[in-house]
Design a protein around this nucleic acid. Structure first.
Lengths: 246, 246
DNA sequence: ACCTGAACACCGTTCAAGT
DNA sequence: ACCTGAACACCGTTCAAGT
């Protein structure tokens, strides 16, 4: 979709960074399942076998893809904040940064969430040593003690994982991020990708037989409220964490 | 690992349920990546092509695996509870049931968390129509109004997703669920799978150069506190949800 | 030093053919 | 009705060979 920085095939033009960036683009566009060494080589104007000079294999490549998208979150603990801002401000900022990554790469984020990190004691989605070092330093330099910083790391990880995985799974489905209570499309013709009108969907009683609550609440369930819920839950989390540090 | 209900190959002995159960066992034992149609056929004493009578393909099989393990949470909303127990008791019970599934099938749970559900407005890990109908009915029959029940569905989903994915990713790593602050293994020889002694690991300063917080906190980070954190966070969640229903 | 062709052992999936 | 053999179009990965 984006203007391709790929297809650079003159001798010596290949390197690991280019391969990984192209892989990220490919996954963003087509999903992980469609990424093969052969297709990625093609995208780069090169035979698949050439890639093995730079990556140890497909698994190594996927790990590199995960690390690549998460580097956007690797920030100075005091950048744009100042140490006076408190650990709450830092967590707010980092939460939104990770959220931006997830929404920018919805097809990559499940990998961020589920692949084994570099060290067994790291937890997704903050999965690189330097990111976690930054995280701990930011908290501790703002007066949080060691044990509490570690607790916060875990609670924060679980929060991000749950909300962001829910958000990207909602992206894969309902394209409309419900702004009004419900979109009124009474007489508008629904069309498919080719512009042809779709056949009328059967009414809820037929689609969901014997499931009265779902029949009634389907429109409400279909609304994408992930953005609001993220903010609310983040506030609630920070309030809860404040009880930990005296 | 378990006594195999597989390898039943006399004509007509194959059916979808057996195939799916065998697939669950295979994934529990070897992981999703190792599950191929051919190997599953072998496990059942049958050629791979036979499976296509009962499943539409590998993707359909994986969806069936997910549904199969999650049926363990498909319960009567009043079973062992009584309608007088309140929605808090129901959520407590369901949370622990989903947790039991995740811990019983740590290699399957990432699929539960990341595969697209049957309907776009369903959210993992409660991803079948009947489970969500049960969930809503349980809450509404205990006095929760429609809109709040839907909000609870989303908040609860996000909670389960985050904590359980963190828990199973911890299972894949540290085998020891830290009971004491830290296991003292000063002079005990660490051995590998063959009983051969492992070479001494280098000290933290060498393994984690320039990462002083990680060097100091690695033992704390390595502790598996997912069980305690699940209970604490669940309590906090219930308290937060109580503010929603007057 | 860097890329490729050919090869190997695997995939998922189809379909006509067997029993 | 149910299973299979053969075949097709793909995989990831290796390695000796080319430039």
């Amino acid at each position: 979709m984006a203007a391709a920085p790929s297809t650079a095939s003159s001798r010596g033009s290949l390197d690991r960074a280019l391969i990984v960036r192209t892989a990220v683009e490919y996954v963003d566009a087509h999903g992980v399942a469609d990424l093969s060494m052969r297709r990625l080589g093609q995208q780069l104007g090169v035979e698949a076998m050439s890639l093995y000079r730079y990556v140890a294999g497909r698994e190594d490549l996927l790990d590199a893809v995960v690390t690549e998208v998460m580097t956007a979150v690797d920030l100075d603990p005091h950048e744009r904040l100042g140490p006076a801002d408190g650990w709450q401000a830092f967590l707010q900022r980092m939460a939104h940064q990770v959220r931006d990554v997830a929404l920018a790469h919805p097809k990559v984020f499940p990998l961020v969430a589920t692949r084994s990190p570099d060290a067994p004691w790291l937890r997704p989605p903050l999965r690189t040593l330097s990111t976690v070092e930054t995280f701990l330093e930011a908290l501790i330099s703002r007066g949080v003690d060691d044990a509490t910083a570690v607790r916060m790391y875990r609670t924060f990880s679980s929060f991000l994982l749950g909300h962001l995985l829910l958000a990207v799974s909602a992206v894969g489905a309902s394209t409309a991020p419900a702004e009004e209570p419900l979109i009124e499309r009474t007489a508008e013709a629904v069309t498919d990708d080719h512009g042809d009108p779709l056949p009328d969907a059967p009414p809820p009683e037929e689609r969901l037989p014997g499931l009265p609550n779902l029949q009634r609440l389907e429109p409400m369930l279909a609304e994408d409220r992930t953005a609001e819920e993220f903010e609310e839950s983040l506030d609630a989390l920070l309030q809860r964490l404040e009880l930990l540090v005296p």
